[in-house]
Amino acid sequence: MLTKRIVPCLDIKDGRTVKGVNFQNIRDAGDPVELAALYARMGADELVFLDITATEDGRHTLVSLVENIAAEIDIPFTVGGGVRSKQDVERLLNAGADKVAVNSAAVRDPNLVKDLSLAFGSQCIVVAIDAKTVDDKWQVFVSGGKEATDRELFEWASQLVTLGAGEILFTSMDHDGTKSGFALEALEKLHQSVPIPIIASGGAGKLEHFEEAFISGKADAALAASVFHYEEISIPELKRYLNEQGISIRV
């Protein structure tokens, strides 16, 4: 039986792990390769690396970082952040990434998703969506949550399926960094709206939050960063807990 996935996320800036609260106040959380290897040993099912570097130098650092990660760890990982073109995707996949996440560039040019899925297969194209509620609607934001768009989460997600996206990484900006639980209603609605796997992101603070994300939110995977980086939740403990709750999990 397919298991639910626990996915530590490493935000990367100039080759180092950082994590912001509500996308702000970034502080250093260590060497990404070290963290990645540690998470793999502890039983993480997958890893996500989101590069938030804005400079061209930093982008080159990313490709070599991806190579170092691939050399060290034997579980799958997704890389995203600033991916704009087929060439970007090719470079990251060739460096050893298993999947690539696109976000802002997909909103600006939805056909990019189509081109990428045709060239590399849907299974390695993850589309990341950052959204928050504005006037009771889930509005999509780009550029690391700084720029509002006129897109609505559920419509955008459905359109992405038509374009060939293989998976959706949905971050609720309302919940991100709050440690008050995932955006369960939105997750469940997303699950009803699209026939592809969904990674829940934003809001993990306690063991129960992951359980809720899988049971009420119907998520296929749950992503978290700071609770893992700062050892507030240990992955083996989390997986034991979920297993005891009867959730299908790889222990």
């Binding site: 039986m1 397919l2 298991t3 639910k4 996935r5 099912d45 997958e46 849907s122 299974q123 293989g166 998976e167 026939p195 592809i196 796997p197 296929d220 995977a221 790889r250």
Partner: peptide, 11 residues
């Protein structure tokens, strides 16, 4: 399509 496609994860 009786399950989500792609099949992604540990099985």
């Amino acid at each position: 399509e009786s399950e989500k496609v792609p099949h992604i994860g540990w099985n």
